[in-house]
């Protein structure tokens, strides 16, 4: 049975990920835009924490169609 724990976003994770994004794109963003991106990263980290708080079993596969391809018959 799946169980949920209380999602707890880690502020250090948000800080690390924001640093990565600032390194990649910071030169094209204003201080105000960067601050908005920082808040956006925090929201995504909270969103990810909500996913991680749900326990799945090993057999819970991703819903993703994959079919091996062979062009000739």
């Amino acid at each position: 049975m799946r169980r949920m724990s209380e999602p707890v976003p880690d502020p250090r994770e948000a800080a690390f990920l924001f640093d990565l994004i600032r390194t990649r794109y910071g030169n094209r963003l204003t201080a105000e835009q960067l601050e908005a991106v920082r808040r956006g990263v925090a929201a995504i980290v909270a969103q990810s924490a909500a996913l991680r708080a749900v326990r799945l079993v090993n057999a819970d596969e991703p819903v993703q169609r994959f079919t091996p391809l062979r062009a000739d018959p």
């Binding site: 799946r2 948000a14 990920l17 924001f18 990565l20 994004i21 990649r24 794109y25 963003l29 991106v37 956006g40 990263v41 929201a43 995504i44 980290v45 990810s48 996913l51 991680r52 749900v54 799945l56 819970d60 596969e61 991703p62 819903v63 993703q64």
Partner: peptide, 20 residues
């Protein structure tokens, strides 16, 4: 730009939860 913060394993977790 903030979406670079989505880790591969979290996207896959979302796809697994989608099945549920």
């Amino acid at each position: 730009y903030a979406r670079d913060a989505i880790l591969a394993k979290d996207y896959i977790k979302a796809l697994r939860l989608r099945g549920v």
